[in-house]
Design a binder for these strands. Structure first.
Lengths: 114, 114
DNA sequence: CTCGTACTTCGATATTTACCGTACTACCAA
DNA sequence: TTGGTAGTACGGTAAATATCGAAGTACGAG
């Protein structure tokens, strides 16, 4: 079974988390995982970038500690590390999601939506 | 009198604000302005970068809407746009500052401190 | 008017980031 | 075992970012 490396709670860095959430595509992924509480395969996000670029963004989020990625067969199930983030940086994630809602929804034009 | 351009509340973008706060030097500036409530000239920050780089970071913060910069003679008085930010993205600034305190203080080694 | 201070602007550079396509791996199902 | 699906790794590129030093501007003090 393939496993992916995730930072411990204590190893999450504010720099990295903020940089991860500063990108609209990555914020879009995080917001969606926050809204739809069950896990999602990468492929279901329909991002406006190529597959390899999507991998890059998911990896950036995972390495920052924002999401958890676990193989399930050939897919990866993504979930938001909300409890860990809330423990490490209380209120940060909620403030970002609230801000995103205020600013106007999706943060990104998915190819399906455009 | 020289004046500098600041975005209106409504024009503040989450992308830009998060990117501004993702950099440790800029977050250090913002944190200091939050702690010491009166204004500060750029020169008082003793950042570990050259003067022109400092200008660049202050400008980035100003253009994101995080700080206000107003000339006072040959100096610039910097202040945090806390009310505006709180109105636009409630809780975001406080969450970032709290996270910074949790992670361990200064976010940056000033040359004086190192 | 001259000088020093505080900051900006410009041009250059190094590094990082976002992005792509191709080739690859791992797994499941037939 | 053959094929399809989901995602990774790699090599490359374009753009953005962070950095510097040198030269310039604006202002107050003397």
């Amino acid at each position: 079974m393939r496993t992916l490396k995730h930072p411990e709670r204590a190893d999450m860095r504010l720099d990295t988390v903020l940089a991860a959430l500063a990108d609209p595509i990555r914020r879009h992924i995080a917001c969606r995982l926050n809204e739809n509480h069950h896990d999602h395969a990468c492929v279901t996000f329909e991002l406006p970038v190529s597959k390899s670029t999507a991998t890059y963004h998911f990896r950036t989020l995972r390495e920052a500690g924002v999401i958890r990625q676990e193989y399930q067969g050939t897919s990866i199930m993504n979930s938001l590390r909300k409890e860990d983030l809330d423990a490490r940086f209380p209120g940060l994630l909620d403030a970002v999601f609230a801000a995103q809602r205020i600013e106007g929804g999706t943060a990104v034009n998915t190819p399906a939506a455009g």
